[in-house]
């Protein structure tokens, strides 16, 4: 049901002239993808510094709350550009991306990373400034930082794997992979 709806949406997007134009453009698609990758340095770069500080592995002489506060804005600017370019990349190749098992895992990891980030921010506010000068953050924040690093590493790896066609719907695959990837037509033909 949900797979059918997602595929219908993807096919509708795929039928739009702008989607085809972006996909088939000589330079636009490449530049959008390049921007998506380069923004990793802004978004993930800042996130790494914050998480490494929380874990007590970098900038230990600087209050962790200062690092988190000062790097939040560039990190969110990077995140916004990543989301914008990511949506454009999806728009350019909507059907194959919707039916990519890697894209689906990436979205799940993104949601998990988002929830973790919200919880992390709430814990950071709740913890106040009392621990700021300590080399390591309180245990709950350290767990959040480690989880953040792990989830974003997963997002990057699965994002990179989308380019590979190992589990594309047109290939003979086990039924459970068709199910997870949302290969509606292939499942109906079984």
């Amino acid at each position: 049901m949900l797979n059918g709806l997602l595929l219908d949406l993807a096919r509708w997007l795929d039928g739009q002239a702008w989607s085809t134009a972006l996909h088939e453009s000589l330079y636009a698609y490449a530049w959008v993808e390049t921007t998506h990758v380069l923004t990793l340095m802004v978004f993930l770069g800042m996130l790494f510094i914050i998480d490494l500080r929380m874990l007590g592995w970098a900038f230990t002489s600087v209050p962790a709350t200062t690092i988190a506060a000062r790097l939040d804005r560039p990190m969110m600017i990077g995140f916004a550009v990543m989301v914008g370019t990511g949506l454009a990349l999806y728009y350019a190749i909507p059907v194959r991306t919707t039916q990519s098992i890697w894209f689906r895992i990436k979205v799940v990891l993104l949601i998990a990373a988002g929830i973790n980030a919200l919880l992390f921010r709430a814990r950071l506010r709740a913890a106040g400034d009392t621990w700021g000068h300590e080399s390591r953050a309180p245990r709950r924040l350290r767990i959040g930082a480690a989880l953040s690093l792990t989830l974003w590493a997963g997002v990057v790896v699965t994002g990179r794997a989308i380019a590979y066609d190992w589990f594309d719907c047109h290939k003979p695959l086990p039924a459970w992979i068709y199910q997870v990837a949302g290969c509606v037509d292939e499942l109906a033909a079984l």
Partner: peptide
Amino acid sequence: LLSLALLGGMVLAGDLRMLGLLLTDV
């Protein structure tokens, strides 16, 4: 890619600090 992100983050933080645009109170 993760190494690129880490490297880029460190370059950005260092360069923007020296440009007076980031972490100016550190």
